[in-house]
Nucleic acid binder design. Sequence first.
DNA 1: TCCAGAATGTGATGTAGGTCACATAACAAT
DNA 2: ATTGTTATGTGACCTACATCACATTCTGGA
Lengths: 193, 193
Amino acid sequence: METKEILKQHITKTITLSDDQFDYFFSHFTPQSFKKGQSIITSGEKVDSEYFVLNGCLKSFYINDDLKMFILQFAMPTWWTSDYSALYSNEKATINVDCITDAEVLRLTNANREKLCNEIHEIEHFFRWRTNRGYVASQKRLLSLMNKDARYRYEELLVQYPQLYNLVPKQLIAAYLGVSRETLSRLYQSSKM
Amino acid sequence: METKEILKQHITKTITLSDDQFDYFFSHFTPQSFKKGQSIITSGEKVDSEYFVLNGCLKSFYINDDLKMFILQFAMPTWWTSDYSALYSNEKATINVDCITDAEVLRLTNANREKLCNEIHEIEHFFRWRTNRGYVASQKRLLSLMNKDARYRYEELLVQYPQLYNLVPKQLIAAYLGVSRETLSRLYQSSKM
DNA sequence: TCCAGAATGTGATGTAGGTCACATAACAAT
DNA sequence: ATTGTTATGTGACCTACATCACATTCTGGA
């Protein structure tokens, strides 16, 4: 499917725009291609954009002082990603985003998003709902993290995103679940039988 | 300070409304008073509103199958709270909200919020930013939960909300941090000296 | 002012999951 | 095909925190 169509179908789930409005909306995005392993947002650098994934798979993650990685999100096609904390408050990134596979994205600058939100009420509505859903998902993950053990969270993840199992290295899944790679390895050894 | 002023000051941090617009906005809220211990949202029941806290302190929490409580949020004055997962998707509550102290709130129904967002662009802007901030805070808490041990999270919480220490029972603080009350007790025994 | 129920402290003990070390397997690039 | 690199498996051991049990203190009615 064409780039433009992917985005159109995505936003049409939430709002209705005329063709002219959508063309105008779309004109504020910049297509970009990245290779597997490339970094899109780097901790310590300025962030001025968010990214809509057309294809491929990204990860957004934090590296702590012990160099341990914690994955906030796997970004699959039609997902949005950025370091929103930095983006919204105009600070330097504390989070990284990079490519697990080759990827194509649409880049939208913070300034353009705010301009569009300001000019077209429906678009502000779209972005409000996008964040609403993100907020709810984040709360759910918080509860799951406090409430459930690693095995449960692992199985929950596989049900929700079966594609991930073959797409991303197990250590990244561990970094998402909040367990060590060794523990994850032992978990699915036993849950396979 | 008067009820209306509290809300006005709060939203004025994000948007500017004319006096008429604000009066109209305010007319969609219903003041309610609750006693310590009263439940505002009960798991299993319908949720049709969110609440803006004028004074007092609420907690929103989840109870798991083992009857263990997990606190998602302490809602202090000028904070908003609800079971947003249920509210946004029109399902029954899975989360409870109740009063840690006597409390006064302004109730805003989902229908009224959507009506206001639709009628007044600025108001939709306000709610987008409110959720943006909530989303970012929730991501930060996720990272803290994965990355830091209980003692660190405890000290972090006290720095952020010193009022909580005397206001809410320690077991609720434990339920927020995601540790047992016994562990929390031992933690601050040793960090006091 | 007294009492019942709730909140907190504290010891003993259990356990999920972390860490370290090293072996094996999969992959990518030349 | 070969080789260096990265991912994965697995044993031995460690630690933060949970759980249980019970003592102590606080609190809010009647």
